[in-house]
Simulated scan of single mutants.
Amino acid sequence: MGNLVLDGLGKRFGASVAVERVDLDVPQGQMVALLGPSGCGKTTTLRMVAGFVPPSEGRVLIAGKDVTRAPPHGRDTGMVFQSYALFPHMTVAQNVAFGLEMRRVNRADRESRTREALRMVRLEGLEDRLPRQLSGGQQQRVALARALVVNPAVFLLDEPLSNLDAKLRGEVRMEIRALQQRLGLTTLIVTHDQEEALTMADRLVVMERGRVRQVGTAEDLYERPADPFVAGFVGRCNLVEGALDSPGAFRAASGALLACAGGPPPPGRPVLALRPEHVRITPAEGGPARLRAVTYLGAQTEYHAELGGTPLVAVLPTPGADSPLRRLSPGDAVALSWEPSAARLLPAARHDEKGA
């Protein structure tokens, strides 16, 4: 077991920058998620850690050892691939034992460790089945067992839940997290699913266009995003362009005046960030805002409104049958309000980053 350090790790494909100087320290036993949209560089970063992609610059250190130039089998890592990558002609037990066989572990130890790995992922009794005879969730568990059986110093997960249906994804997500914590595995996981990252990881690394935008806990990134990209990617957020009109008052580009937190504004033209759950909505005949859509989501209801030409979304617990909110419909006039401290001013993206 050990920590994982990425020291200025970068990758270029010709003139194209896939990953730009990532610095990251994953302490022993912690799970860190690389989070971002498709093409942001997160999978390339993971594959550099695994040894499948050679970096153009920087270093990878595992338990203090520089493994930047070491082959994948010489890095003491266990990896679960997005496609599971199980051998179709091998049984469950043979798939799990494959890594041990490649490491020339003797047969008795190989069989003992394979049984233990299958027990950890609750697949006892399925040793002789082929992958095609398993459900998607069971195949995922085989892939997990195969990565765990080699006792890796670092556990690597590449979109491990993307091929599962929604219900099974939630179940397996909690199983992976519980297993990782119980075994104290230093883990790096790649995902584009914000809920997956928020519920599984100790810290998140938000990436865009090969660059790290922000590193922090789920609470850090949700409550204190560094910029509009992070605010919009981690959870939902109303993002409004404009300028500070006066302390505590933000003038949207549409002309609407919106309450915001006091304090010094960020440099340049700021963007107001306001989470939908912080917006209160009140029926008000002749009110300044007008509803554009009302969407029932079960436990919550989503209200799309327009205030002085500025669209805003509010998400509230679904009101009871007797609440006046229950009778709202598109076209109705309403009043919108929020605590000024809930509306944060963030620095707009720099011009040199927009086309990066």
Rank of each mutant, 00 (worst) to 15 (best):
V149H: 02
E57Q: 15
E20G: 04
D76Y: 07
L9S: 05
G137Q: 06
G8W: 02
L61D: 09
H278D: 15
S341V: 15
E353I: 01
D332L: 07
L148R: 11
F233N: 13
A178S: 14
S254F: 01
C237G: 02
E302F: 00
P54M: 07
N238H: 04
Y222N: 08
V19F: 07
A18T: 06
P71L: 02
G14T: 03
D25M: 12
A256W: 04
D220I: 12
V294Y: 05
M207D: 09
F52H: 11
E196P: 10
S323V: 01
G263D: 05
V67A: 03
M174F: 08
T191E: 02
Q181G: 01
P160E: 02
L118H: 04
L24F: 01
E277L: 03
Q214R: 13
E127M: 07
E339L: 14
A349W: 07
A63S: 14
R107W: 02
G51M: 10
F233R: 12
E124H: 00
L328W: 09
L157F: 09
E285S: 14
D165M: 09
V234D: 13
G51I: 01
A108D: 14
Y303Q: 06
P27Q: 06
A299I: 00
G8M: 02
P54R: 15
S112T: 14
R119M: 01
L185V: 00
T310W: 07
L46C: 06
K11G: 06
R269E: 12
R251A: 11
H89F: 03
A201Q: 12
L204N: 13
Q194G: 04
L157H: 07
D322I: 01
V206L: 11
V190I: 03
A145N: 13
T77D: 02
Y222D: 05
C260F: 05
P347N: 05
F13L: 13
V154L: 12
R110H: 04
L9G: 06
C40T: 01
G248P: 01
N106P: 15
N163G: 10
P27K: 03
E124F: 00
V215I: 15
F155I: 09
L188F: 02
L157P: 06
V22M: 06
S323F: 00
L161E: 13
A117V: 02
P330E: 04
K11N: 07
P152D: 13
G286S: 08
R269P: 08
L35Y: 05
R251D: 06
S56H: 12
G232E: 06
S16T: 15
G355T: 14
E285K: 12
L156A: 10
P264F: 06
V294H: 06
E127H: 04
R350W: 02
A33L: 11
G298P: 08
H278L: 09
K65C: 03
L204C: 10
R113W: 02
T45H: 12
F229A: 11
G331H: 08
L118N: 06
G268L: 02
A33H: 07
V22H: 04
P152T: 13
S135F: 04
N106D: 15
R115W: 00
Q180F: 00
L134D: 11
S341A: 15
F233Q: 13
D202L: 05
D193F: 12
G14E: 03
Y222I: 09
P265Y: 08
D128F: 00
Q82Y: 03
